[in-house]
Design a binder for these strands. Structure first.
Lengths: 204, 204
DNA sequence: GACCGTTGTGAACGTACAATCACAACGGAG
DNA sequence: CTCCGTTGTGATTGTACGTTCACAACGGTC
């Protein structure tokens, strides 16, 4: 039966998934191989059958995060034809990431990750760039359609969208979920939109 | 001589300063009591003459960070009479914090800090709130002078200013300083200003 | 000059954790 | 059935670090 005899590849992914989940909910500091092993029903040393060391596992986690982020963008693109609506969707989906499993952001945007091997830093940066590029594509499409002012640097706009999410996520954590991320993100999005849109909502 | 016989209070501050400096430049993970002790010319166990434990030291660090942030706002206020100019100054000063010692932000805005004792979380949240309130005061002053639209929630605007700083700081770290934080902050500030100002720069 | 509180020291302990290794279980290929 | 590569196990090691403690140095007070 296919669900018992797990393929090697699948096992690796299962472990990486568990690791990601731990980082997502408890932070990088509490990510021990023991904890990961427990989740997948393995003994700590068993991890080494699938990963050279902890570092390699972490890189795999970053890979998974990248997948999710890009999938997120893709889903947003397919949700609507309006690039502005797509951008809004990206932000809101990311916010949902924060609220549900609290998953993704603390891995890419966490300060924690950066005090690490140069290799992992590079990997995180690459993920960051991919994500930024994917979102930037939407911005450029919006500009092509004349929905966003031409004189805007797409990268700047993308960074500002990240700027909605990151501090909000942190505050959400700090307040144990009492800070209303969704509402804030909505407001901030409106504000940025108003400044960026060619036909400013409140212009004139 | 006063510079040899250090007052108790001064010694505590000296240690906290060293600890802050380490966190600032190397992150929380690399903050060991041994490292702190080395910096102040002490043996690791010596720290315990001044702090009950590591946790108490960290709280002291947060206190120092709060002081700096509030001093930052105060300095910005005295730099100009124009509240808009004051806000800009706050952002730019914070950016300078990132570039020089890289100091402050990774302590308050680092994801790291939050997976800790409830007490420290509360302390960090308090600092966050103080900072946000101080900046919010400037926003409200600007509104009172009719420089910022009345229908803006000051808290939202403050959060957005933080949103300029936080991801930029992270990216700055990731790229080893190749990302031009200053330039980005300038751009983002202009964009937000344009949306928030009553006499929008580009309105009409 | 004796007494005592404060500050600093070095050794030691406990713990958490990554990493290694010898060995067992298993399942397919010959 | 046998051989062997893969996957899992349990014991073990090394290390980094927070924390404790008994003891020494120092300086002011009576």
């Amino acid at each position: 039966m296919a669900d018992e005899k797990l393929d090697t590849q699948i096992r690796r992914e299962q472990i990486a998934e568990a690791a990601m989940s731990i980082v997502a909910s408890h932070g990088l500091r509490r990510l021990s191989l023991a904890a990961v092993a427990r989740r997948v029903g393995l003994v700590p040393s068993g991890i080494y059958r699938h990963f050279k060391n902890k570092e390699e596992l972490l890189v795999a986690v970053v890979d998974r995060v990248e997948e999710r982020l890009l999938a997120n963008v893709e889903a947003a693109r397919q949700e609507s034809d309006d690039p502005l609506e797509q951008l809004r969707s990206v932000v809101m989906r990311h916010v949902r990431f924060i609220r549900e499993g609290r998953a993704v952001p603390r891995i890419i945007f966490a300060d924690d990750v950066h005090e690490s091997s140069a290799k992992r830093r590079q990997r995180v940066l690459k993920t960051f760039n991919h994500y930024a590029t994917a979102v930037g594509d939407i911005v450029r499409a919006a500009q092509a359609q004349g929905r966003i002012r031409q004189d805007f640097d797409p990268q700047t706009l993308v960074m500002m969208l990240f700027g909605i999410i990151v501090p909000a996520g942190i505050l959400w954590h700090l307040t144990d979920g009492r800070f209303d991320v969704t509402h804030y993100a909505e407001q901030a999005w409106q504000l940025i939109l108003a400044a960026a849109a060619s036909d400013g909502t409140r212009t004139k």
